[in-house]
């Protein structure tokens, strides 16, 4: 049996026999009733929505923390600079003072 011919023949059969376009009675009423009534949310859909809301909230918290950390780092840098200057001044203060002949 020639499979290519069989394939072509079966496809011809499918083309020659299109499916029925019959519609069940009052099907449009069913659609409109579904549209009109609030659909019960599936558990997975609710879970997905909750996850997205949680993700947005987490992103906001992350941004705030990042801003806080950045501003803290800026302040620490400034205070570190002040601290190092103070330390240097303290350490070298003794050198700056004139040596007294105290012995």
């Amino acid at each position: 049996m020639n499979l290519s011919d069989l394939q072509a023949k079966l496809l011809r059969v499918a083309r020659a026999n299109p499916p029925d376009a019959a519609v069940p009675y009052a099907f449009e009423k069913r659609i409109m009733a579904r549209i009109a009534s609030p659909r019960p949310e599936s558990a997975w859909a609710l879970w997905g929505v909750s996850l997205w809301r949680g993700a947005v909230a987490c992103m906001a918290v992350t941004l705030l923390c990042a801003f806080w950390a950045y501003s803290s780092a800026q302040r620490q840098t400034e205070s570190a600079a002040n601290f190092s200057q103070s330390l240097e001044a303290t350490v070298f203060a003794s050198m700056d003072q004139p040596v007294e002949d105290s012995w």
Binding site: D20, V23, A36
Partner: peptide, 17 residues
């Protein structure tokens, strides 16, 4: 929303097929 019904009536045979 009720104006969606004529669209359903018009196209449902094609969609069923």
């Amino acid at each position: 929303s009720s104006r969606f019904e004529p669209l359903v009536v018009k196209y449902q045979p094609r969609i069923f097929a």
